[in-house]
Design a protein around this nucleic acid. Sequence first.
DNA 1: TTAGGTGCAAAGCATTTGCCAGTCT
DNA 2: AGACTGGCAAATGCTTTGCACCTAA
Lengths: 152, 152
Amino acid sequence: MDTSLKSTLHRRGLRMTPQRQLVLDAVRELGHATPEQICTQVQRAAPAVNITTVYRTLDLLEELRLVRHTHLGHGAPTYSERAHEHVHLVCHHCGAVSEAPTALMDELADRLREREDFELDVTHVALSGRCATCREADLKASQELGEKEARA
Amino acid sequence: MDTSLKSTLHRRGLRMTPQRQLVLDAVRELGHATPEQICTQVQRAAPAVNITTVYRTLDLLEELRLVRHTHLGHGAPTYSERAHEHVHLVCHHCGAVSEAPTALMDELADRLREREDFELDVTHVALSGRCATCREADLKASQELGEKEARA
DNA sequence: TTAGGTGCAAAGCATTTGCCAGTCT
DNA sequence: AGACTGGCAAATGCTTTGCACCTAA
């Protein structure tokens, strides 16, 4: 696996460096993480590594199709391994991020292809909505409101 | 319509101002536009209006559920009228944005509700992928590549 | 010896905040 | 007077760029 990265780089006249390995390792360990978080993780092993290098390396790894980035809505994008494919669900109330199998989107992808002639990339953008926890909280709140109004 | 905005504001102890009207008008005219674009449009009528005001007003109008913002992937979000509900399809190759009926997402929304206990907000995030035009270009390119290889 | 790689500082965009002066009630 | 507004400048967060130095082929 590392061998393949090394040789892929080599084919392009690029080198394998400790920084590049560390960034890739960090992406793998962290699951989905922002450049900032990845930088912090890398700096545990090599404190001198600059965030600039992290950005540059992430761009490179993305070009090499080893990682991908996903926009979770606001703020920084998160990076994850390309191999680990899933759909992101972001709660825009509490900010929680969960993952769902991409198969959920298959039918939508088919329909978009047929009707809109659009080839969906399932992983690039997160789906936004309300998570289970926040929905329960909402339910409770509206019940309490209902009781209060009933009393009034 | 303006009356309802004015009275909605009034109920909250807020005032109707030329700036607020202009921002709302601009959102309606432009369809989906970034704060920057909205600001430019507003400044045609009132050059002194500051981008800060645009941001503040957009937040307010969003709270009042008159507009909504959508993340099209990279860069600034775009704002559009709340009433005009649709799904955004963004081509991450050429950047083109198209719109599709939200009904396309109904089944996905149902499945997410059932299986993931997640209440999808269809409009908040754009779907990313490859548009018809770019797919054709891809097809042509791969055909040419095929011919070239066949010759070799 | 030459391209590639990195660190550092500075610049660049998008957005938010603090503050003050003006305005409506 | 007191709350609401909007303009301006500065701060913030995220990312990119320019440049000098270093290292591997």
